[in-house]
Simulated scan of single mutants.
Amino acid sequence: MHKDKLIVFVQTDKPIYKPGQTVKVRILPTTHDLKLVPKETIGSFQIENPDGIVLGYWPMLSFAEGIVQFELALPDEPTYGMWRIKGNIEDTKIYKNFKVKEYVLPKFEVKITPPSYLLTNADSITWKICAQ
């Protein structure tokens, strides 16, 4: 159908995911002059974990509406690292990476130091609060 390669825009809703989150993907293929591809254009896509295991496969995506969206719910205990979206539209191969990382709560400490003495008739009291 096309002799020129396509330009394919692949977008995820974020670059880093945590276990159990849903990866949302949008695909917009255009011709080399940034026009929408013909309505009969079909593509196939898959999402692989860092070990190359396919966890989602969409074999016959139609680009009749221009943009295609699909999503994959990550397992609660996924393989951490760089995941890959791979696809083909006609002769054009598409690759897009995203990370899956374990969520670690940030560590911080708050120290509150009261004054060494309190006056019952004082208008104000000074406390020292330090967060790290």
Rank of each mutant, 00 (worst) to 15 (best):
M1K: 15
K3P: 03
K3Q: 12
D4V: 07
L6K: 01
L6H: 01
F9N: 06
F9S: 08
Q11T: 13
K14L: 03
I16N: 08
I16C: 05
Y17A: 05
G20E: 06
G20L: 06
T22I: 15
T22E: 08
V23N: 03
R26A: 11
L28K: 07
L28E: 06
P29E: 07
L34D: 01
V37S: 01
T41D: 02
T41W: 00
G43Q: 03
S44H: 10
F45I: 04
E48D: 10
N49W: 02
V54C: 02
G56A: 14
Y57M: 13
Y57D: 14
Y57L: 13
P59F: 04
M60S: 14
L61P: 01
L61W: 00
E65D: 14
V68G: 06
Q69G: 11
E71D: 02
E71K: 14
L72E: 03
L74T: 00
P75W: 01
P75N: 09
D76W: 09
E77I: 11
E77N: 13
Y80E: 09
G81M: 09
W83F: 09
I85T: 00
K86R: 14
G87D: 04
N88W: 02
N88E: 12
E90R: 03
T92N: 04
I94G: 13
Y95W: 14
N97P: 09
K99Y: 06
K101I: 06
K101E: 12
V104D: 03
V110T: 10
K111N: 06
I112E: 12
P114R: 06
S116P: 10
T126K: 10
W127F: 15
W127S: 01
I129F: 08
C130T: 14
Q132I: 11
Q132N: 13
Q132W: 04
